[in-house]
Write a protein that binds this DNA or RNA. Sequence first.
DNA 1: CTTGAAATTTTGACTAACCCAAATTATAAT
DNA 2: ATTATAATTTGGGTTAGTCAAAATTTCAAG
Lengths: 232, 232
Amino acid sequence: MGAVKGSSPKTSKGTLGKDQFGEYLKHILRLEHVSSPVSTSALSESMKVAPSTVTDMLKRLAGKKLINYVPYHGITLTPEGEKLAVKAIRRHRIVERFLTDMLGFEWHEAHEEALLFENDISDEVERRLYSALNRPKVCPHGYPIPTKVEDVLVEEVTLYSLEPGEQAEVMSVKDDDPEMLRFMASLGIKPGVKVKVEVKDPFKGPMQTMVGKQKRTVGWHLANAVFVKKLR
Amino acid sequence: MGAVKGSSPKTSKGTLGKDQFGEYLKHILRLEHVSSPVSTSALSESMKVAPSTVTDMLKRLAGKKLINYVPYHGITLTPEGEKLAVKAIRRHRIVERFLTDMLGFEWHEAHEEALLFENDISDEVERRLYSALNRPKVCPHGYPIPTKVEDVLVEEVTLYSLEPGEQAEVMSVKDDDPEMLRFMASLGIKPGVKVKVEVKDPFKGPMQTMVGKQKRTVGWHLANAVFVKKLR
DNA sequence: CTTGAAATTTTGACTAACCCAAATTATAAT
DNA sequence: ATTATAATTTGGGTTAGTCAAAATTTCAAG
């Protein structure tokens, strides 16, 4: 019953597969933005897998020419790898947007729901999804939907960096903690909202702020998960 | 980095997993409709895998109590298995509908695109998809979107069974051959369309028919892939 | 009631993606 | 030069899927 099964296509040239490659690439791209080359331990922590697992994966990624891997000296993305990473991030954000805009999910659910099937849709579905959504510029958490590396990066001015009296617009928020997102939503913090710092306690203490027209107290952790653009 | 990885949730009680279980269950349900219990060879042919592969799978399916498996004597679905099979079919048809209605895919593409990610979406996404689609009754090929076994079955009166002079409405068409679907579309054959047989050649010869207002010649194979409801 | 073909299962492997702990080895900083 | 830390290797493990070939069972025909 031979048939057409045998050799699987897999992650062939410019395609995202069912594997974890996309996930790894996403993390590498983000980490590289912080410090390049990326260390095994950084990836291990970020991916929440053992260092030995990472080393394994690096060898496979290197085999596919997606990363430059110098044992003991960290890795960088190859142009190919970078392209795929951007593609994976783009897809994730489009799917998130689909989940919130077309299916009515809350933003704290979108991230994890997207992870479930984003790696299995075809490029064509992604394209059509994007069109059907009206070619949005950002994901529900305010991050850009990129076409190239430069688009991925975001101004990382945190709410916490503001001083009393300063005003700003929320641009994006950390998207990986559903509980925090839920809480942020309850405070009215989301992309597009205007904030103004009134009081800032020392020693990483909480801030008294205006979120829109509401008085809100915001702790250090949360204030560091909110990215803003200063106004005036 | 122990974390929460270890034991995977997998196909736990009433849930469809990433595995092939859903696919097998779908096929078993269909085959059981034809003749029950279902034989290994029938499944092997239908799934396009070797008989030994099927036997393996049957043991796993039986382990999960989804089928009643008597070695050498075929299988039947357990109530559980039947429920899951219906669920898998329902999901497939909802996703197909999503692809055609919301993303504009052609019906011949929908089937295969759906297969790519239908097993990875959560129940919640399925539910919301269904609502967003306005709770449709059938898939793009005219098959019902079921909630229970009885809904899955379809009247199997083929276009070929009609005699000259008889009129009918197309209810559904075989959904598993993209090329045939494409050709059907080119002839204007799709669910809802009215057909009338004018001439029927003997020896499995072609039929002269009216499809809507168009004169069409339809061969035996195609005429047997079109299911109709007689009119008047 | 035997026999043999057909159907089915078992056996023994294989691939591919993951993943980990423990032992070993390399690097870099003192 | 020493040593702590980081990284890799070694040696396992799992799950999911697949197959060909050998062995077994069934069933129907004689």
